[in-house]
Amino acid sequence: MNTLTTIERRAMQAISTDSGRMLIVAADQRNGMKAAIKDAPNGSDAISREELAEAKADLVRHLANHAPAILLDPEVALPAIVDDGVLSRGTALVVGLDASGFETVDGLKHTRFVPGVTPRTARELGGDAAKMLWYTRPDRQGLDSRVAGEIRDLVAECEAEGLLLIVELLTYQLEGESDEDYAAAFPQLVADGAALAVACGAKVLKLQYPGSAEGVSAVTAAAQGVPWAVLSAGVDHETFIEQIRVAMAGGAAGAMAGRSLWKDSLSISADTREQLLTERALPRLRELAAVVDAR
């Protein structure tokens, strides 16, 4: 197991419930969040940066301030949500380091850092922790791969900065790979990705749900004691709740929920946003918290 430093342990406490389970509202999406605002007069493409920033601030006010932690981006949300006093002092801040989109090299996807944003920047923005996303195909990427090198480097940089790093992994279907072959390989790809990240020093993981209780057990074994949280991947709330029940029973350490909480609770109207987030998204968060803490 990759041991947490003292300051990293404090950060883990900050992003967890009183029972010690990770529970983070994910709101670092940019284009994905725009697409969730269905009632924009001229479509999501016409939503300005300022309008998106206002939506993110309301999401924090009416939803995330009721959670242990919120994941936000440094391109739209930060530093304003901290500087304007929107973020509650009782809600920890996780700063997303990954830029939107990806590049493809030799058939493999690679994410990029937000330009100019480093572990030091995340700390200066008020972050208790940082999160970085990597696309992985561990059947084609080993310890000498670009992604492995990037994970090792960022783990070391964050530890030197005294910043807890959450390593997010997304596996994906290769060009020319059949749906059947990918579906069959998916659970093992999630587990092998976890093993790769742990071998590169990762101390906290954010992973896709591997599809079954057996898959969860394989991921927990691959993580070798490193805590891992399940990401919602855009599924509906009811589906995610059941995934979390299975995952927590099989050794997962928590949940990081984004669209499953708020994808149908955003509006171009601030008044409508407040109503939807309060009456629809917040009860979902409370139900999720109860499931996360029930193990």
Rank of each mutant, 00 (worst) to 15 (best):
T5I: 03
R9P: 04
A11W: 00
A11Y: 00
I15W: 00
I15Q: 02
I15M: 07
T17Y: 09
T17C: 08
D18W: 08
A27W: 01
R30F: 08
N31A: 11
M33C: 05
A35R: 14
I37A: 12
D39S: 13
A40P: 10
P41F: 00
N42G: 13
N42K: 14
S44Y: 07
D45C: 09
A46P: 08
I47F: 00
S48Q: 01
A53S: 10
A55H: 11
A55K: 03
K56M: 08
D58L: 00
H66Q: 07
P68D: 12
A69Y: 09
L71K: 11
L71A: 04
E75D: 05
A77P: 11
L78V: 07
L78D: 02
D84Q: 06
L87A: 14
L87V: 12
A92F: 01
V94Y: 04
G96A: 15
S100R: 15
S100N: 08
D106S: 12
L108E: 07
R112N: 04
V114P: 14
V114Q: 04
V117Q: 12
T118R: 09
R120D: 12
A122Q: 08
A122S: 06
A122T: 06
R123I: 10
R123M: 10
A129R: 06
K131S: 05
L133Y: 00
W134P: 04
T136R: 04
D144E: 12
R146L: 05
I151N: 07
L163Q: 14
L164R: 08
I166H: 11
V167W: 06
L169I: 14
D179A: 07
D181K: 14
Y182C: 01
A183P: 05
A183G: 04
A184V: 08
P187W: 03
L189I: 01
V190S: 13
D192Y: 09
D192N: 10
A194V: 09
A194D: 02
A195S: 03
A195C: 09
A197T: 15
V198Q: 03
G201Y: 09
A202P: 07
L207I: 04
G211I: 00
A213Q: 09
V216K: 06
S217D: 05
T220N: 05
A221R: 11
A222P: 15
A223P: 13
A223K: 14
G225I: 06
V226K: 07
P227Y: 08
W228M: 04
A229N: 13
V230R: 04
A233S: 02
G234L: 04
V235K: 06
H237L: 02
E242F: 01
E242K: 03
R245Q: 10
A247W: 08
A249M: 06
G250M: 12
G250V: 11
M256G: 12
S260A: 15
S260K: 01
D264R: 13
S267K: 09
A270P: 05
A270W: 00
D271L: 10
T272E: 06
R273H: 07
E274M: 03
E279V: 04
E279M: 09
R280I: 06
R280H: 08
A281Y: 00
L282W: 02
L285S: 03
L285C: 11
E287P: 03
E287V: 06
A289D: 12
V291F: 06
V291Y: 02
V292Q: 04
V292H: 01
A294V: 00
